[in-house]
């Protein structure tokens, strides 16, 4: 049964259109960026896309449980500010600061999750409010971009673990493995149950309150990883460095076939969505589109991808 290819289940999979888009966009990139398949280009693309992919996973998990996290970008900003103001040159201080930053990400995700699952306000408004709050705190500590990140911290991030294997890839593979093992657990089924229908999940003995908080904590791990990437890449603390991630990650999740009302779609979706968005921005860069048109094209491309993403729904509706 498992070995038989079921074509219908493949093309009706919510992530199927994003897979097609991904392939198309890779071809487009290969066409425009002539050294696309070289190791250099691969690595530099990977360095650019990793934070977006990690935030998309974080957002995807939260969307799966039926919430949304608009404060994710501000969380990243606040962590970059914290890390850039605390980090010293020694290896020990780097490790400690990375841990403090990760702890902060978990704490902020926990606050979001706790408020949403305990008081029950709309996640959209709640996380918007917390994003204003986090942004304010980041701005309070660092009104202008600055701070200090030792150059070997950035170098470590950009270096190769061994020839042909960049350190960033370790981040991604670690994240994928972690996700893979998570997806086998009972808890992961609870995410879908709660996202699909809270009341029904509760009636069936799922602890809705804890599940939501756990999902936010889980997303906090990925936010922390993304923040470490951002700080290593920009080598500064900046209260505005993370802001674009909030909305891009939501777009990536939806492009990846997740349902905004929760409970439907695969976590592979946001990963592909993040890749698609990253490659699209790449295309805009390499196609020599003047900066005046970039914002416009970005919007058009997102709308287009979303429209293509809606195809399986039509196929399903027709086959019924």
């Amino acid at each position: 049964m498992k070995n038989r290819l079921n074509w219908k289940s493949i093309y009706q999979n919510p992530s199927f259109p994003s897979f097609l888009i991904l392939i198309a966009i890779i071809f487009l990139n290969a066409f425009l960026q002539h050294n696309f398949f070289t190791y250099r280009a691969f690595k530099s693309n990977l360095l650019t896309f990793t934070p977006l992919i990690l935030t998309s996973i974080a957002q995807g998990l939260v969307i799966l449980v039926g919430c949304v996290d608009l404060s994710l970008g501000a969380t990243i900003s606040l962590i970059t500010v914290l890390m850039a103001s605390l980090m010293g040159d020694s290896l020990l201080s780097m490790v400690i600061v990375v841990f403090i930053g990760s702890g902060l990400a978990l704490l902020m995700s926990f606050i979001n999750g706790f408020i949403i699952s305990y008081f029950g306000p709309p996640p959209l408004l709640t996380t918007y409010a917390t994003s204003v709050l986090w942004f304010g705190i980041a701005l309070f500590f660092m009104p202008t971009p600055g701070g200090y990140i030792p150059s070997h911290f950035s170098k470590m991030y950009r270096s190769d673990l061994f020839p042909g294997f960049p350190v960033v890839l370790l981040f991604l593979i670690g994240a994928f493995c972690f996700l893979f093992f998570m997806s086998k657990t009972r808890f992961f089924k609870h995410i879908y149950a709660v996202g699909g229908n809270e009341e029904a999940a509760y009636a069936n003995g799922v602890n809705v309150f804890l599940t939501k908080i756990k999902v936010f904590l889980l997303s906090g791990i990925f936010i922390a990883l993304a923040a470490i990437c951002v700080v290593a890449q920009t080598a500064t603390g900046d209260a505005r460095s993370g802001l674009s991630f909030s909305l891009n990650s939501v777009a990536a999740s939806i492009i990846g076939g997740l349902s905004f009302s929760g409970g439907r779609g695969s976590i592979i979706g946001p990963i592909m969505g993040g890749l698609i968005l990253g490659l699209l921005i790449n295309v805009l860069y390499f196609a020599n589109i003047t900066s005046f048109y970039q914002e416009f094209m970005k919007g058009i491309i997102i709308i287009f991808s979303l429209a293509v993403g809606a195809i399986p729904k039509f196929l399903k509706a027709r086959s019924l």
């Binding site: 008081f119 409010a129 304010g136 705190i137 309150f209």
Partner: peptide, 28 residues
């Protein structure tokens, strides 16, 4: 106030308002 203090106050107040006005305590 500086931009930062304004954002923090606004954020805190929004959070309180959102919880007070739109919060629906659920069964769990």
């Amino acid at each position: 106030t500086t931009e930062a203090v304004r954002q923090i106050t606004l954020g805190l107040l929004l959070l309180i308002l959102v919880i007070a006005y739109t919060g629906r305590r659920k069964r769990w």
